[in-house]
């Protein structure tokens, strides 16, 4: 750890402590929601739904729910923390310090991704109470887990810098994250869709994220995990580079 600069470590630590100290706001909601998801979709409905490619329905939806929880929490953490800091102007504490713009942006990205990963693990543990789950491809699981949370944390930063008021934050969640999720193959197999919808679905990055994580958990996926990982990594690098550039420009931060 000591190779990292003290300033970067401190800001990252501050950001992580912020959500750890408020479990009621950060961990309880996904816990409750996912217990409900698994009960209703997995157990009650799941008994009437056939196995998909030999995977029981409750296990089929588990990776999607993990991704959903992980990315929405990564997004929410980054966007909320940046926006709250701007709103109350205490983000100045970091801005007026000798942190480099890269360090500032990365600290927020890493903290948001950390929250996403925590929530993802939490959901997997909830899922394990409903069905037996293992990690068929642990390295892929870790790689996809990292890349999707980093990506959405990075997007959350753009949102947090762009927002002008609290409604903007809610709106982004409604119109960006939710639609991606519901058409992203969390609850159904895209192979079952009509050809056109299937083609459209393949433009949705969520499909690649869900399938990648599903590959990690159950060892099978509807799209090639290597291509998915490559594309998602590329996107993540681009978004994080954008974050750094926005900090450098002072977008939403300076006058």
């Amino acid at each position: 750890m000591s190779v990292l600069p003290v300033g970067f470590k401190t800001l990252t630590r501050r950001e992580i402590l912020r959500f750890l100290r408020r479990p009621k706001n950060t961990f309880v909601p996904p816990l409750v929601t996912n217990v409900l998801y698994f009960s209703v979709f997995g157990v009650i409905l799941g008994q009437r739904i056939n196995e998909i490619n030999g995977v029981p329905y409750v296990l089929f939806i588990l990776p999607g729910l993990v991704v959903l929880g992980a990315i929405s929490n990564a997004f929410e953490n980054a966007s909320f923390s940046i926006f709250h800091g701007r709103w109350n102007e205490y983000i100045d504490e970091a801005l007026t310090s000798p942190l480099s713009y890269t360090q500032m942006a990365l600290a927020y990205v890493v903290a948001g991704a950390t929250r996403g990963l925590f929530v993802g693990v939490l959901i997997a543990i909830v899922g394990a109470a409903f069905t037996s789950v293992g990690a068929a491809r642990p390295l892929y699981l870790v790689a996809f887990g990292l890349v999707v949370t980093l990506l959405f944390s990075g997007i959350g930063i753009v949102g947090g810098l762009w927002a002008d008021d609290w409604d903007d934050l809610t709106m982004m969640n409604q119109f960006i994250v939710r639609p991606l999720v519901f058409f992203g193959g969390v609850f159904y197999s895209i192979a079952e869709l009509p050809a056109t919808l299937r083609a459209v679905s393949l433009l949705n990055p969520m499909v690649y994220m869900v399938n990648g994580v599903r590959y990690g958990f159950v060892g099978q996926a509807e799209v090639d995990p290597h291509l998915s990982l490559l594309v998602l990594s590329g996107l993540t690098v681009a978004v994080v580079a954008l974050d750094v550039a926005l900090f450098r420009r002072g977008y939403g931060l300076t006058e």
Binding site: P5, V6, G7, T10, L11, S97, L99
Partner: peptide, 12 residues
């Protein structure tokens, strides 16, 4: 205060 000091590179 500890955070502010940390941002300026002062060890914990």
């Amino acid at each position: 205060l500890e955070h502010k000091a940390g941002y300026h590179g002062i060890p914990a």
